[in-house]
């Protein structure tokens, strides 16, 4: 399980006084980038080699709102890992309360849009983050 801290800034909020819904997708993407960096994957180098990660499918539940200045934690776990795609279970917590949950399917592809095998660092991980 990978944990990543997020503090809610003014720019993350909307007219409703809560975090704008699309920003949870940015929060969990920052957590994914931090996670792959710590696994030793250099996304900038991958891009130079013509390979990028792409989000293929998202199923997301907005369970409770977050507000300004709150300290949140993004927890990331692997739900499934294949050779070209992986499914992550990502949750945003405030303390013990889960505010947001998403199942995110990621693929590795060339910048031309062709599927590409996931990096070895990721393929070896199925089941254990």
């Amino acid at each position: 399980m990978h944990s990543y801290p997020v503090t809610v800034h003014y720019e993350d909020t909307d007219l409703g006084g809560i975090v704008y819904h699309a920003n949870y997708l940015k929060f969990i993407e920052r957590a994914r980038s931090d996670w792959v960096r710590k696994l030793g994957i250099d996304q900038v180098a991958l891009r130079r080699d013509g390979v990028v990660f792409a989000v293929h499918h998202i199923e997301a539940w907005f369970q409770a709102p977050a507000t300004l200045d709150e300290e949140l934690t993004v927890e990331t776990a692997i739900a499934e890992a294949g050779s070209v795609r992986m499914v992550l279970d990502q949750r945003v917590y405030r303390g013990d309360t889960c505010l947001f949950r998403a199942q995110v399917t990621l693929v590795s592809m060339t910048t031309g849009g062709k599927p590409r095998r996931l990096s070895e660092e990721l393929r070896g991980l199925s089941g254990n983050t």
Binding site: L15, G16, I18, H21, A54, V55, H56, H57, I58, E59, A60, W61, F62, P65, G113
Partner: peptide
């Protein structure tokens, strides 16, 4: 009128999204 709704104390929220990214 979302501004008028907000003045009355109500806002729209997204409860669930299921999304497929098919092409770039």
């Amino acid at each position: 009128d979302q501004n008028a709704l907000r003045e009355e104390g109500f806002v729209f929220v997204v409860h669930r999204i299921e999304a497929d990214f098919l092409a770039s």
